[in-house]
Design a protein around this nucleic acid. Structure first.
Lengths: 347, 347
DNA sequence: ACGCGATAATAATGCGCATTATGGTCTTGT
DNA sequence: ACAAGACCATAATGCGCATTATTATCGCGT
């Protein structure tokens, strides 16, 4: 027989007051001239301790209050395909921040999966209402879903840059553009002049930003962009040889160690013959992660910052634009895969 | 202006019926002789379509019944110390199962941390009530907390073997005993006779089980146990030499690569001079994880099985003992750190 | 013609909490 | 001495839904 939860009414009975009084003491709030004496207040607090009361978050929500629960909605289904390796670090940051803030995290794992992707359908969206607010993670498609989110005034924050809906989407992202620019500049300073970009050319934000940083850095040096769109490592290696590239920047969807092996099969060594810079953590598990030059996305920090922002939005704080659309700096990694080109031109 | 949600009352108004009628149609249920005519039913369904109604889960829950939320409580604070690497895989399994079952996962990150360990205090416990049931993860201390859990009839399942409270604690664990026994037998079959156990001698269940498996396997072969309790890798290496060991089984709290390095500093190679077998995944991040012989704990599977069991308990199914205290087999890993001893005795 | 059961739907209630509207009592100022 | 606050606390209401209790209508047998 499941013992019924302790309610405010129970506490009130013990303290010899009304349920409303308990609620006022708990929320430490006195709207419209409600007064609670120190004595009564203490009696209620004692009763709470005695009964071991804690609020029913569901009822809190229904009555229009907050319940110290923030949700996390991941668009991409976490399985299969090692997606976890990608989202895990964000969650670590989220969890860390949640611990500091004393709130619980609700993972919306129940959303229907359509085409390997979770959907925020109309009824899926309704479930979000359990939490005070929600973090959104991953690539999404449906603009109308976002519009709906905005319309309902439900607090949410994207993890990852989102420029759309008239800039009304709050997010915490990573500054891919300048990180990529710095990566390319590093190659240019080493003397490279034929620098390729190896990766898919999607229209997603990270890809767009990486490409923009790459192109800008080259353009500033009076050089042209060279895309290496091939997927197969050996094809990439072949393209590098064919285009006479001395260096490539590598998008995370490409496995650097496979490229390394493919180059070696053609007698090319990294970084002796080809310098390689990683644009963020590769999606693959590496045998020797520390050796690669490039930058890392501060995922944990992003998760933590996003949760902090969300909690401010939930609290109803006015948040100005620099905080609503925050880009965090990526951390450059020295590594050992950048060297001057063999055929370096004289400066 | 937060657009108010469509409610059953709205639907009822459109259909020209009462709110209760809408609820009955939605749940397709007629308790205690309630009848809805096909005509009315259709009008309600049309009204639902027109208004785009969907239920408010918060209200549904308040009104009674289950909420399709299961909680996860982790005793050890996830930070710091890379604990995430240990608990992550369990959560992966949990999340996977949750997705299948169509339920959401609530992480109790709000629990107060005392001495680097989360506590299931009385009010912490009350918060569990949000969810239909809860998974417990990690080492715990307070027996009285467990007793309280049992008393309240709240559905819960431990991840990890728990023998206490008269065997009334449901759990899904890993069979450390036989996995360790097999590991030792493998060394014995390779010809080893002086096999040490390197690790802490705690009273926690995993340690107890590993030691039991180790001791039993040796005893069956008429050999004695040799504990190497040292913490420092160099001290471990020294002890191995001193005791004349030709092989060690290594508990997860020891870093195998550090031991490897320490042995090499003394001119000993693995596995040429010393064979090493890992008793589960080490807590440290390894440079070359795949090379080590030993076994792995099926963490994801444990998480998934635990959630499945919990959902059955929540549903009120009668669950018999083999399922209530399930031990999953560990997977043996071939690896390359076992070889015959140099000083092998003739068979 | 009368009552009884089946049918059809609504009214009413409560889940636990936040909040507004009220009702008292005790001090002040004039 | 008497009204105007200030102070203290409670009653009452509603959030959206599930569920129980209740009302109303009709067909049918005797």
């Amino acid at each position: 027989m499941p013992k019924r939860r302790t309610t405010q009414a129970d506490v009130a009975a013990v303290a010899g007051v009304s349920q409303a009084t308990v609620s006022f003491v708990l929320n430490d709030r006195r709207p419209a001239g409600v007064h609670i004496s120190a004595d009564t207040r203490q009696r209620v607090l004692d009763a709470i301790r005695i009964t071991g009361y804690s609020a029913n978050p569901v009822a809190q929500r229904l009555a229009g209050g907050r319940n110290q629960i923030l949700g996390v909605f991941t668009y991409e289904a976490t399985f299969p395909g090692g997606g976890r390796d990608f989202y895990g670090p964000f969650l670590v940051g989220v969890e860390h921040a949640a611990e500091q803030l004393g709130i619980d995290i609700l993972l919306f794992t129940s959303a229907r999966v359509v085409d390997g992707r979770r959907r925020l359908t109309r009824d899926g969206w309704q479930r979000l209402g359990i939490a005070d607010g929600c973090l959104l993670l991953g690539q999404h498609e449906d603009r109308s879903e976002l519009q709906h989110l905005l319309d309902t005034n439900y607090p949410f924050v994207f993890i990852g840059k989102r420029v759309s809906e008239g800039g009304r989407l709050p997010y915490v992202g990573a500054d891919y553009v300048s990180a990529t620019r710095r990566a390319v500049e590093r190659l240019l300073e080493a003397g490279h002049r034929r620098v390729g970009y190896a990766g898919d050319m999607g229209s997603d934000q990270p890809t767009t930003d990486r490409w923009a940083g790459y192109r800008d850095a080259l353009r500033a040096a009076g050089l042209g962009a060279r895309l290496v769109p091939e997927d197969d490592p050996d094809a990439v290696a072949a393209a590098i040889v064919e285009q006479g590239l001395t260096a490539v920047v590598l998008a995370p969807e490409r496995d650097p160690e496979e490229l390394h092996d493919a180059l070696r099969r053609r007698g090319l060594e990294v970084p002796r013959d080809v310098s390689v810079v990683l644009l963020g953590q590769p999606h693959h598990r590496l045998r020797r992660p520390q050796e690669w030059s490039g930058f890392v996305i501060p995922r944990e920090q992003m998760g933590a910052r996003a949760l902090l922002l969300l909690s401010r939005l939930v609290a109803g704080d006015e948040v100005a634009d620099p905080d609503l659309h925050r880009l965090l700096e990526c951390t450059d990694v020295e590594g050992a895969t950048v060297a001057p080109p063999v055929t370096a031109l004289a400066p």
